[in-house]
C-alpha cells in the first residue's frame, strides 16, 4: 500500500505543470490540454483518497468529472474552431475582444 502523501505530491506536481502550461503557452489548444491535465491531477487525488478511506463517493465523483470533462472538451473545441474561422489563428493574445 502506497502512502497517501505520495499521491498528494504527485498530484500537486501535475497540477502545477498544468498551471505552468496555461501561463506559459499562447496556443489555445495547448492551454486547453493543460486544463485537462489539471482535471486529471485532481481526479488522481480523489481516487487516492477514495481508496484510502474505502469510500465509493470519491470514485463516483471522478466518474462524473470525466463526463463533464468530455462535454467541456466538445464545446470548447467547437468554440475554438469558430474563433479560428473568424480570426484565422489560435493565438490567445488575439482573442482579447472582451478586454476593457
Amino acid at each position: 500500500m502506497i502512502p497517501i502523501d505520495y499521491y498528494l505530491w504527485l498530484s500537486a506536481t501535475l497540477f502545477t505543470i498544468g498551471v505552468l502550461g496555461v501561463l506559459y503557452r499562447r496556443n489555445a489548444i495547448i492551454v486547453f490540454m493543460c486544463i485537462e491535465l489539471m482535471l486529471n491531477a485532481v481526479n488522481l487525488v480523489m481516487v487516492a483518497f477514495s481508496n484510502y478511506m474505502n469510500d465509493a463517493a470519491g470514485q463516483v465523483f471522478v466518474f462524473f468529472i470525466m463526463a463533464v470533462a468530455a462535454a467541456e472538451v466538445a464545446v470548447g473545441l467547437a468554440i475554438l474552431i469558430m474563433m479560428y474561422r473568424i480570426t484565422r489563428t489560435t493565438d490567445i493574445n488575439i482573442l482579447n475582444r472582451l478586454k476593457w
Binding site: L14, I17, G18, G21, Y24, R25, I30, C34, L37
Partner: peptide, 9 residues
C-alpha cells in the same frame, strides 16, 4: 507522468 506532462508544455 511528470516527464510527459512537462513535454506537453
Amino acid at each position: 507522468a511528470v516527464l510527459s506532462a512537462l513535454l506537453v508544455v
